[in-house]
Structure formats: structure tokens, C-alpha cells
């Protein structure tokens, strides 16, 4: 037996594993969605299966804009986790009033600025153990 890392940092996204599978399915098709509470109408970010405002656990999916603006960012150059490489641009992107934590891909750190427009760029990561594709909601400069 060789040394191995017992590590999968990515969410299990399929319907076998999460109540929020619709989010990932839509993301794989290029759209950003979130949950809107069926009880009180509050739209959440990130999507959630229980509403802290009214206590309901039913929701509808609503589509969010594919465009956002950079609210804050930092460039991590070193000290990244195994499997992740620097420089890596971590950002908070404002999308339809929501603060969305993400990374910016294909971004030149020197040219980046707060207030800059960015577009959704779904990022494909490692498939799950059953071979299902997995996606994360990343952004790139518009």
C-alpha cells in the first residue's frame, strides 16, 4: 500500500448526495441559481434548505444574473492547500445584491480592481467517484 491522502475537497453535488443538486445541475449548464423561500419569499445566498427568517424548508429555484462586480479581492501567492496553485485570486463578487465568495479565473492580478465587472465562469473540478461532473461557481473578468 502506498501513502495516500484521504482527501476530496469538493462537494458531492449529485441528487444522491445533496438536496441542493439543482444548483449544480444548472451551474453545469452555465447559469447561476439560488433558493427562494416558498414560505416568505426570501432569496438566499448561498442556496439553503432551511429559511432562518420564517422556518420553512421548501424553496423554489431562481436564476441570478451571470454578471457581477468585484467587491473585494486578495491574491494568494503561496501557502495554498494541496491540489491548489498560486497565484490564486479570491474574491467577493456582488451579484444581484448578494455577496458571493468565489475565485476569479483568467485574471491578471495587476489589472484587477474593486468595482470591475466579472462574468460567471463555471469551473469544472474533479469528477465524483461515480464519474459525475462537478462544477464550482467561479467568475472571470468581463
Amino acid at each position: 500500500m502506498t501513502y495516500f491522502r484521504a482527501t476530496d475537497p469538493f462537494p458531492l453535488e449529485s441528487a444522491d448526495h445533496t438536496k441542493l443538486h439543482e444548483f449544480y445541475a444548472r451551474l453545469g449548464q452555465g447559469t447561476l441559481a439560488t433558493t427562494k423561500c416558498a414560505g416568505c419569499g426570501t432569496a438566499a445566498w448561498p442556496p439553503r434548505g432551511f429559511c432562518p427568517e420564517c422556518g420553512a424548508d421548501t424553496f423554489d429555484w431562481v436564476e441570478l444574473s451571470a454578471e457581477g462586480t468585484v467587491h473585494a479581492f486578495t491574491v494568494q501567492e503561496t501557502g495554498l492547500p494541496a491540489g491548489f496553485e498560486g497565484p490564486r485570486v479570491f474574491a467577493i463578487v456582488k451579484v444581484d445584491g448578494h455577496r458571493v465568495f468565489s475565485i476569479l479565473v483568467d485574471a491578471d492580478p495587476v489589472k484587477l480592481a474593486v468595482g470591475q465587472k466579472v462574468r460567471l465562469a463555471p469551473l469544472r473540478v474533479a469528477d465524483d467517484p461515480k464519474g459525475n461532473a462537478r462544477w464550482l461557481p467561479a467568475f472571470r473578468p468581463a
Partner: peptide, 28 residues
């Protein structure tokens, strides 16, 4: 035994699905 694995473990301290999956740990 490997330094980047120690850092990967630190990712368990942030939200795995919405933060750590992007490679986030505390410094950013």
C-alpha cells in the same frame, strides 16, 4: 509528512461546499 496536506487540512475550518472547495483557508 507533506506541507501542502497540512494546509489542505486547514480548509476544514471554513465552509467546505462554498469556500474550501475553491482552495480557501484562513489567510485570504
Amino acid at each position: 509528512p507533506t506541507g501542502d496536506e497540512a494546509i489542505l487540512n486547514m480548509g476544514t475550518g471554513v465552509d467546505r461546499e462554498w469556500e474550501a472547495a475553491f482552495g480557501l483557508t484562513a489567510p485570504p
